[in-house]
Design a binder for these strands. Structure first.
Lengths: 340, 340
DNA sequence: CAATTTAGCCAAAGCGCTTTGGAATACTCT
DNA sequence: AGAGTATTCCAAAGCGCTTTGGCTAAATTG
């Protein structure tokens, strides 16, 4: 059933039927009713390919997926996707993942924009002065960044959590508990979120007249193994930290293992706070010692990003609005006063 | 730059240019060369929307993503995606995720097929007599199943691992080590992979004249917490198992925690084998006691599925070929002879 | 050498929608 | 009543490809 048949069946022109269906005003309410009715009854659905060719709109949002033999997709991605999909579903928006060589995402961005394959894109894990942002910004496709960049000479729309604030609070708590030697096990130092987290910790330390030594900060990709290694190195130093702030639950698993291997205890010898993106399959309250966390649902972020993308596509949202979500600090058993 | 302009510029018809570009034989080699050349020089790229409308081919593969507030996307998905993307990239294939209400995926399948949004789809986590397979099979869109169904009255193309064989081997090993009381902590019992795994364990037990009691098998969604709970229940029984086979590394984390909480040790009091899908961020060799696993890279499976989908799209692969990959049994420190 | 093929190219007709630029009818106003 | 203004609808022109059905000139055949 296509438009031609439908309009013929109604003895109307394609124009009128099309307009009736798309809510244009130049069609009488009665005709619209008739058309809508017939469309529903015959299950008419406009062919998206045709509509797309005519309008240039695809009804899809895009994401450029960096791939490569040595490139691992962040496990957080799937949770973000859950939220995104949750919203997108209710709006019949599809998501297209365009795999790209991790060393050359630009070509892919250009392609999907030139081809008008998607109406908007979202970008995640931005870095300082991220070139992708500059690119999509000049290409003129609607977009939203999940996270933030820095040092760009233009504004852009984003959704981020208050990473600096969160880690500032975490560090401040530990300092108030009397800890003098803090360490930070962070994510990839080239990503903005990690920079912000470090900044938060430093700011808290500075407020107490302390600093974060080079050796007390580790930036690694967030795997259990890296968490373990980082923790071991830190704890085997001459003056080991009595508190660690850690950028992910997965790394925290490794930290806990390291602590055990060294015959130490949490929170007796070490206080631990980690960031929790809220995975359904790994929860901080179920750690051997319930883990204190800075918590922010990445899933909700996904839903919100989808919502804003939809708004931008339909012109309801404009400009470079940045949105920063506060982060909860949830205190559980893994923190205590500094050891004697 | 569109076809019209390009052909005009070459003083050729659109027909000829189109044919030259798409490798049709009714154009002379010289002309083809000229056309190819000019196309490259001017960076001509056929508009996919137009091509799509004309041919009905989209150059994308589809996946229906079940969503809902209480629906969690399997974290394995992201690894599978890595592999898929890795292959798809080299073929300029995009992947479109169509979010669907988890209670009604059928509507979405029908939509993407009717709209010809994608050239092929893949289906994951099949269940026995999975209605999705029957649906796509009758809808006539090329597809591949990652996993297997059962009890369907038709054949279909799939890629699966030998879950039954893997768990059979794991159980057999434990039996040979003298274990008399085995337990299985499995995934969702309604998914075929879980059924196969159970079957494997049962078969091994049967070969030794034993059976798997109702209380020695737990089927749960694969979270750390569920692994913990299942293990606790099992281990707190009157005659606790001395060996556990577990369907995922994430659940194994919970098992390890439960064992500790109960003051037991691995492998002294309990031998443990788990299935490993090979995550970059959680490795069995890094468990407190290195974990024995049945191992199969889900990422490689993703790449293979993409490869076969591409082949089916281009007509290189036909029929209902099923492909079953063997699974490695990797023995590490977590298994030992049954306790006295 | 006339009769056929064949190779190489083209005009035009889709694909199924949206949108422009009227046209016709009905309604309002003086 | 006639001019002006809404209202409601339509024919046709795109959007940019692919593909069908020729057509012409060169090559092959008997």
């Amino acid at each position: 059933m296509n438009l031609k048949q439908l309009s013929h069946m109604l003895s109307l022109s394609q124009t009128t039927v099309s307009r009736a269906l798309n809510g244009y005003p130049e069609v009488s309410e009665e005709t619209r009713r008739r058309v809508m009715d017939a469309a529903k009854r015959h299950g008419y659905r406009p062919n998206p390919s045709a509509r797309r060719l005519a309008t240039g709109k695809s009804g899809m949002i895009g994401y450029v997926l960096p791939t490569g033999a040595s490139v691992d997709i962040d496990p957080h991605f799937v949770e973000f996707l859950s939220g995104l999909g949750d919203y997108a579903r209710s709006h019949e928006l599809d998501l297209v993942l365009s795999p790209a060589d991790a060393d050359d995402e630009e070509t892919t961005y250009r392609r999907i924009v030139a081809n008008r394959q998607v109406d908007a894109v979202y970008i995640s894990s931005p870095r300082p002065a991220d070139r992708r942002l500059a690119l999509v910004n000049t290409l003129g496709i609607p977009f939203i960044v999940h996270g933030r960049s820095e040092g760009l000479d233009f504004d852009y729309p984003y959704l981020d959590i208050d990473n600096e604030g969160a880690f500032h609070e975490a560090a401040r708590l530990l300092l108030q508990l009397g800890h003098k030697r803090l360490a930070l096990i962070n994510g990839n130092e080239r990503e903005t979120f990690a920079i912000h987290r470090e900044r938060g910790v430093r700011r808290a330390l500075a407020a107490s007249g302390m600093t974060l030594g080079e050796r007390h900060i580790r930036s690694v990709t967030m795997t259990e193994e890296n968490g373990y290694r980082a923790a071991r190195r830190l704890l085997e130093e001459a003056e080991p930290p009595t508190a660690i702030v850690c950028s992910s639950l997965i790394m925290a698993l490794g930290v806990v293992r390291a602590v055990r291997d060294l015959g130490l205890t949490i929170p007796g010898d070490l206080s631990l706070v980690a960031h929790d993106d809220v995975f359904p399959w790994l929860r901080p309250e179920n750690f051997p010692v319930p883990l204190s966390t800075t918590r922010s649902s990445i899933r909700l972020a996904g839903a919100r990003v989808a919502e804003r993308l939809a708004a931008r596509i339909s012109g309801l949202e404009e400009g470079a609005r940045g949105e920063v979500w506060p982060v909860d600090l949830v205190v559980r058993g893994s923190v205590a006063g500094a050891p004697g």
